[in-house]
């Protein structure tokens, strides 16, 4: 079975890779491009640990085929900081202790950024529902929600 050649953009950089037709985008990111920040917690779209942006939409990378990335733009956790400068969410997650084991953290950050990119003033309920597809087993979500609220407040103040 011949592999497919895919040309895509990942975190703003042109990237190419070879993949099986039925390989997921998550496996291609991790195994072909070495971007292991996106995690596989379930492989069925139920945990959100593999959250990435595909052409500006938040998706589970385990539920997209790698071949679908052809000609499209993918953003992952590895592209969230601008060089040395952390995204406000990355900083507030650290300040608010919004992670314990850290396995779900990349997915939460990518998902939370997608929320703040469209709404800088979400209510607690909106944050909780937006992030309902991201499972965290350690924190009970409290500090994650607070970190998102804090980042939003800071970004509102900057805006």
């Amino acid at each position: 079975m011949a592999k497919r050649h895919v040309t895509t953009t990942v975190n703003g950089e042109p990237r190419e890779f070879l993949c099986e037709v039925d390989q997921t985008l998550l496996d291609a990111l991790r195994d072909e491009l070495g971007l292991t920040g996106s995690k596989e917690g379930c492989g069925s779209g139920d945990c959100g640990a593999c959250s990435v942006m595909l052409d500006g939409r938040l998706v589970c990378a385990c539920l997209a085929l790698a071949v679908e990335a052809e000609g499209r733009e993918v953003e992952t956790i590895e592209g969230m900081a601008e060089g040395e400068r952390l995204h406000p969410l990355q900083r507030t997650f650290l300040e608010e202790a919004a992670l314990q084991c850290g396995i779900c953290t990349p997915g939460f950050l990518v998902a939370a950024k997608a929320l703040l990119d469209r709404d800088l003033d979400p209510s607690e309920t909106e944050i909780r529902y937006w992030l309902a597809g991201n499972l965290c087993r350690c924190t009970g979500y409290d500090k994650i929600v607070r970190a998102v609220q804090k980042a939003a407040a800071e970004m509102r103040a900057e805006a």
Binding site: G45, G48, S51, L54, R57, L58, V59, C60, L63, A64, A111, A114, L115, W130, L131, A132, G133, N134
Partner: peptide, 9 residues
């Protein structure tokens, strides 16, 4: 149907 992520697809 599903999460925000699922809604994207």
């Amino acid at each position: 149907i599903g999460s925000t992520q699922i809604q994207g697809r």
